[in-house]
């Protein structure tokens, strides 16, 4: 049985880590970008960012004053048992979010959309979001917190099969340039692209592609992985760098996730996970052991569920062409 107090304490620690410590995969990606950047102003910005990560760690102060909108992804091993059940888990995550907002401190960003009511603790109607995934084995629970910036860098469009890869490319450029101008997307960013599903599923795919995969990993479909590499390069050849200044650092990595969609459509979403890519992860075991990490390891074969358990390998995956 996993103790509920252990979940709450770990969640609070994760909130702090996410706000303060830049994940190593993103940091390494940004260091490479800083070396390759040749725009004067963009270079200055990237150097300032690298300094800022150090300052945040030394001062135990949030990297960015806009600490985003905290949310939770919970992955539960099939054999895990949680004290008090899933309702107690949700309650613990809400408490941890409120407590950490005060302690770190985080900016109390969450308000009512119409009345702008602010409880000063990032908790309210539907906030923080809590989403779930499961794995076939394990007695553990993975807590993943993501504090994504909330305003710019995300868009959705219903494309059609006739739009093709060129249509995807075009909407990708549209989104990057639109939000890259003046640096509204807080680039260089991890760009997540969702393809297919339905409108809501497509948004979820793209957001998870940006927030739950790490810099340097690849989609298991080799053709999609190739597209990821091509799109990273395309984004960095726009001529735009940090803050929308002349430069070549726009995309630290591009991650694409897909889901089967309506036969007549090809939904597409684009998401940008910013310069302060805030994510932190912990695995909690029933004996009370907690292991912290920054890679969500969200996308497992089970999460993508490429096939059904009564069929070895679907024929569409063979890429005959």
């Amino acid at each position: 049985m996993i103790q509920i107090k252990k979940i709450e304490n770990t969640a609070e620690a994760l909130m702090e880590k996410a706000a303060i410590e830049i994940p190593s995969d993103y940091l390494n990606g940004l260091k490479i970008a800083a070396k390759e950047e040749d725009g004067d102003l963009s270079s200055f910005v990237l150097e300032a960012m690298l300094e800022n990560y150090e300052a945040a760690k030394q001062d135990r102060s949030a990297m960015c004053g806009d600490t985003g909108t905290p949310r939770w992804y919970v992955k539960i091993g099939n054999d895990a048992r949680i004290e008090g059940g899933p309702v107690a888990l949700e309650s613990a995550l809400r408490r941890a979010t409120a407590n950490a907002t005060k302690k770190v401190p985080l900016r109390p960003n969450r308000v009512h959309p119409l009345w702008r009511t602010d409880f000063d603790n990032n908790v309210g109607i539907g906030a923080p979001e809590i989403e779930y995934g499961f794995e076939p084995e394990g007695e553990w629970v993975d807590l993943i917190t993501v504090h994504k910036g909330g305003l710019f860098g995300t868009d959705y469009r219903m494309l059609f099969p006739s739009d093709g890869i060129e249509g995807i490319k075009r909407f990708y450029l549209d989104s990057l340039i639109a939000f890259g101008k003046r640096g509204l997307a807080c680039q260089p960013a991890i760009i997540g692209i969702g393809l297919g599903g339905s409108k809501d599923a497509c948004m979820v795919l793209g957001k998870r592609a940006a927030c739950l995969r790490v810099v340097g990993d690849e989609n298991p479909d080799p053709k999609i992985a190739e597209l990821e590499r091509e799109f990273k390069e395309l984004g960095n050849s726009i001529g735009m760098g940090a803050m929308g200044f002349v430069g070549n650092s726009m995309v630290i990595d591009c991650n694409i996730e897909v889901a089967f969609c309506h036969t007549g459509g090809m939904q597409m979403s684009v998401h940008a996970f910013c310069l302060s890519s805030r994510r932190a992860v912990a695995r909690i075991y029933p004996d009370g052991k907690v292991i912290y990490r920054t890679d969500p390891q969200w996308y497992t074969p089970y999460q993508r569920r490429e096939t059904v358990d009564w069929q070895e390998r679907p024929s569409w995956q063979n890429h005959a062409g």
């Binding site: 200055f44 910005v45 300032a48 960012m49 300094e51 800022n52 990560y53 300052a55 945040a56 001062d59 102060s61 949030a62 990297m63 960015c64 004053g65 806009d66 900016r107 109390p108 960003n109 308000v111 702008r116 602010d118 000063d120 640096g183 807080c186 940090a242 803050m243 910013c274 310069l275 302060s276």
Partner: peptide, 29 residues
């Protein structure tokens, strides 16, 4: 700059000399 250089900017803060309209507008506003 950045725009995420919050920690660096935080180092430039000497003290908060006042917070006004907190009860009317909330901490963020």
């Amino acid at each position: 700059v950045g725009y995420g250089t919050g920690a660096l900017l935080g180092r430039g803060v000497e003290r908060v000399s006042g917070v006004y309209w907190h009860s009317e507008l909330g901490l963020a506003q």
